[in-house]
Design a protein around this nucleic acid. Structure first.
Length: 264
DNA sequence: ATAGGCGCCTGTAAGC
DNA sequence: TGCTTACAGGCGCCTA
């Protein structure tokens, strides 16, 4: 699903298509999901940024378009049966594709995120220098939630979703069921490092495209990180480290994959 | 404070 | 074969 690496890949692909271009209009028939898009009419796109899983398009006149891809959202160069909105640009059309309609778009005054509470309280970017091991350790220790739930929370680190939470916990050798307040300092640091490594590798490979091909880049290219998944989507298959079958359970309502031998 | 469960959505896969 | 049911999950919301 679109998590930090997929959204970052999307941002990089959109950059040459959008930056410096004039947005004539955003067409759709769903004003509840795609809010205040009329404000974007005849605005220039001044920048294409990202915070966590949110895409942030800086628009002229001090406005900002915020896009969350939800589970199945993405931009495409071609119209699809699930095109939900069309971005009419001075030199072409960009299609917002979203079969399950969990994606959202807002146009707001730049930085005014009152309508988007999750964006307003987002934690640090895990690939930036603002992501500090001390604060991460404190955050884990303060909570009785399981580690998997803490990674999904967006408060300790922005942009982590189900795939990368499972993969980071595997690399750190930590069970997704372990409670935050029970981890040692060394374990917390392992998780901190593992998270950064997994996310950086996934960004370098263009994110993960699962077999349902839900996530694609705008030109239809798949990502490459799915080939490196050690546990996600591999229930019953051998652990790449020890060969034991990967187990599947539920944490925080999400399918959770781990190696019962390597992750304690 | 936090955990669990539901609802939103729709395509796909599994079960009968 | 054709139908029904389960499942995938990011996030908001409600309840205990």
């Amino acid at each position: 699903m679109p998590e930090l690496p997929e959204v970052e890949t999307t941002r990089r692909r959109l950059l040459p298509l959008l930056e410096g271009k004039r947005l004539l209009e955003v067409r759709h028939q769903d004003p509840l999901r795609y809010r205040h898009t009329e404000r974007a009419r005849e605005r220039a796109v001044e920048g294409v940024g990202r915070r966590g899983k949110f895409l942030l398009l800086a628009l002229s006149g001090g406005l900002e378009m915020v896009v969350h891809l939800g589970m199945t959202g993405g931009f495409r160069l071609e119209k699809t049966p699930h095109t939900r909105a069309e971005f009419l640009l001075e030199d072409g059309v960009l299609h917002f594709h979203d079969p399950r309609r969990f994606g959202r778009i807002w146009v707001v005054e730049r930085g005014a995120y009152g309508e988007i509470p999750l964006l307003a309280r987002l934690g640090p970017e895990p690939l930036s220098p603002e992501f500090r091991p001390e604060a991460f350790l404190q955050g884990l220790r303060r909570s009785r939630k399981p580690l998997k739930a803490l990674l999904l929370d967006q408060t300790l680190a922005a942009g982590v979703g189900n795939i990368y939470a499972d993969e980071a916990l595997f690399r750190a050798g930590l069970s997704p069921f372990r409670l935050g307040r029970e981890v040692s300092e060394a374990e917390a640091l392992r998780l901190f490092q593992a998270l950064r490594e997994v996310l950086a590798e996934a960004v370098a490979l263009g994110g993960s495209t699962l077999s349902d091909r839900t996530y694609q880049q705008p030109d239809g290219l798949p990502g490459g990180f799915q080939k490196r998944h050690a546990v996600y989507g591999r229930a019953g298959l051998p652990c790449p480290r020890c060969g034991a079958p990967i187990a599947k359970g539920v944490v925080a309502g999400r399918g959770t994959h781990h190696c019962p031998w390597c992750q304690r």
